[in-house]
Design a protein around this nucleic acid. Structure first.
Length: 593
DNA sequence: TTAGGGTTAG
């Protein structure tokens, strides 16, 4: 190996900086046994290295090695690099090793590459790549080629990963798994799955680690039939069904929309951990089955599994969507009690929960108390304020956000535009819509056009709204036509409303909203015949208005109210209160409530 | 002594 290894090339290529503390040996805190000859001295130091419990202890041994030339061997350097392979310090030691005239071997490079990959240090990866080629280790050792593939994958260089894979003289199941994972990490799920089938054709047996990655790709694709094939593969090929495979299966079935299968796999798992529970809770929440998500959370607590921050995000999301303020507050108290940092995911979920549960003040408290805010935090509070009619405030926070340098994304603009729409800020709304692409490089999506049409329509600017729809680069969706129809209803624009309804029904023939808006419009314009015609055609299509439903939580009990449902025991009092409220509002000039 | 694994928001 060493005969073809040109050290001068390496010395020129390796230009890493060695941190000074590696060169100035400090007083070693570890006692090294005195040994009479070099060999036993080396085995002593190796034993000490093996007993080291922290990187700082290893660095102390390294200081001793620097002072003791007989200890400067390939074996000792490998052991130090191995111990420090979770930081770039391993690379500095590697360079020092080369400067001492020592060669890397098939144990050195994987650890150095692991350190490079962890730090995403591409130029170091490339330099070590050169050494791997020069030394012949890349061609001869599959560990070296696999760790190198992984390092390029982490740096996002898919073409280099593929070149290495294709040029690799020997491939094993790890090489294939690394290739598949590189594709999946890069968002190329289909290519990842394709590589899995090629791997099978090539006669390799995928193991549980491979399957976990392929299952996660399948989950992202939402491809249930592929998921079933993978489950069959696991059964037929005796893949070990450990907790990782189980969790990946649960997540996959949930994301592919088969909650029953997910639940079956979950039930059959011999060992579950917090991730298993999280997958179920989050999966159910993502499907909109918030009540079931909360039921599973209660079950999790009953069996004594401690929730982590991921669990709490799922629970908060469910509370937010069910309007369960008290439960949300309970989670908040839990977070405070257990000293879980409310920055990042948790903080953003709290903002969303409070604002969806109607407590915008609390949402603002959380937002203001956060030390680290990201685009999600800003978007959550902007959307929340817009929802609560605090348009001006929402826009102020948007301008604060611009000053911090955090780039808004497409969802942020949904919040900004809907704030403008609620406050009737036509000019400002137009400007933000324009800025989306010209300043922030974001292409407006149908929902942004929907907001703009809503804004213009509410302001009575129908010609401009129609022009916007005509100029849309994509087909207008139901939100866009719905926004136009809603505005027509306000202004009694019957003809335009009919056109909007027609388009809306082409897209969503089964939705009753358009019929109801249109029939209300006919009624308020005195066109009773038309109103009756619409209602009749709804009946012919067997459409029934899905009763609107709202719920509040009081003292831990959820009260649900549906349109036309008088079953609540305190219905009389509630109606009386609402009537008082309505007359109170009318006295303030609100006529149409 | 060496390589590849699941869940997280607006």
């Amino acid at each position: 190996m060493s005969c073809c290894f040109n050290r001068s090339v390496i010395l020129i290529k390796m230009n890493f900086q060695i941190p000074s503390h590696h060169l100035s040996a400090s007083v070693p805190a570890l006692a090294v046994p005195q040994a009479s000859d070099t060999v036993s001295l080396q085995s002593s130091i190796l034993a000490v290295l093996e007993s080291c419990k922290s990187p700082s202890e290893i660095k102390q041994v390294h200081a001793l090695v620097v002072k003791t030339p007989p200890l400067q061997t390939q074996l000792v350097y490998n052991a130090i690099i191995q111990g420090l392979s979770s930081s770039l310090e391993a690379v500095a030691i590697y360079r020092e090793m080369l400067l001492k005239g020592l060669f890397p071997n098939d144990y050195t490079l994987p650890f150095v590459l692991k350190a490079c990959a962890q730090a995403r240090a591409l130029s170091e990866v490339e330099q070590v790549h050169a050494h791997a080629v020069k030394s012949g280790l890349l061609a001869s050792n599959v560990y070296v080629s696999n760790t190198l593939m992984r390092a390029y994958a982490v740096c996002g260089l898919m073409s280099d990963v593929r070149k290495l894979f294709e040029g690799s003289p020997r491939r094993d199941v790890v090489s294939w798994t690394t290739l598949i994972q590189a594709y999946v990490k890069m968002g190329l799920q289909k290519e990842g799955v394709g590589a899995f089938f090629k791997m099978c054709e090539a006669g390799f047996a995928a193991d549980e680690r491979t399957l976990v990655i392929v299952l996660s790709a399948c989950a992202k694709l939402g491809d249930l039939s592929l998921g079933r094939r993978l489950q069959a593969y696991i059964q037929e090929n005796g893949v070990k069904r450990d907790v990782f495979v189980g969790n990946a299966l649960v997540d996959m079935f949930l994301k592919c929309g088969d909650a029953a299968l997910a639940h079956q796999v979950f039930k059959d798992m011999p060992v579950k951990n917090v991730v298993s529970w999280n997958s179920v809770i989050l999966g159910l929440a993502q499907q909109g089955n918030f009540k079931e998500a909360l039921r599973v959370f209660k079950e999790m607590q009953r069996v004594g599994v401690r929730p982590d921050d991921v669990t709490l995000v799922g629970v908060l999301n469910s509370c937010a969507n069910l309007g369960l303020l008290d439960s949300g507050k309970w989670v908040h108290a839990y977070i405070d009690k257990h000293d879980i940092r409310a920055d990042g995911f948790i903080g953003n979920a709290l903002i969303d929960m409070y604002s969806k549960c109607g407590s915008i003040g609390q949402a603002l408290n959380v937002f203001q108390g956060m030390k680290l805010r990201d685009v999600y935090s800003y978007t959550a509070i902007i959307v929340g304020l817009a929802m609560h009619g605090e348009a001006k405030w929402a826009l102020d926070i948007f301008s604060d956000m611009s000053e911090t340098g955090i780039e808004p994304d497409q969802v942020t603009f949904v919040g900004v535009l809907s704030a403008c729409s609620h406050a009737g800020l036509v000019e400002e709304g137009r400007r933000h819509f324009e800025n989306m692409s010209s300043v922030y490089g974001l292409e407006p999506q149908p929902e942004h056009y929907g907001c703009l049409v809503d804004l213009l329509g509410r302001a009575g600017l129908f010609a401009e709204a129609e022009e916007i729809i005509r100029r849309m680069p994509m087909e207008p969706d139901a939100f866009v036509w719905g926004a136009l129809l809603g505005a027509c209803r306000i202004y009694g624009k019957v003809e335009l409303g009919e056109r909007a309804m027609k388009r809306l029904l082409e897209i969503e023939p089964e939705r009753e909203g358009a019929y109801i808006l249109m029939s209300n419009m006919y009624s308020s314009e005195g066109k009773w015949k038309d109103a009756i015609r619409i209602r009749k055609s709804m009946k012919e299509r067997y459409m029934k208005k899905v009763p609107g439903c709202s719920s509040i939580e009081l003292d831990g009990k959820v009260h649900e109210f549906r349109k036309g449902d008088k079953s609540h025991p305190k219905m009389k009092e509630i109606w009386k209160f609402l009537e008082n409220l309505a007359s109170h509002l009318k006295s303030y000039g609100q006529e149409d409530i």
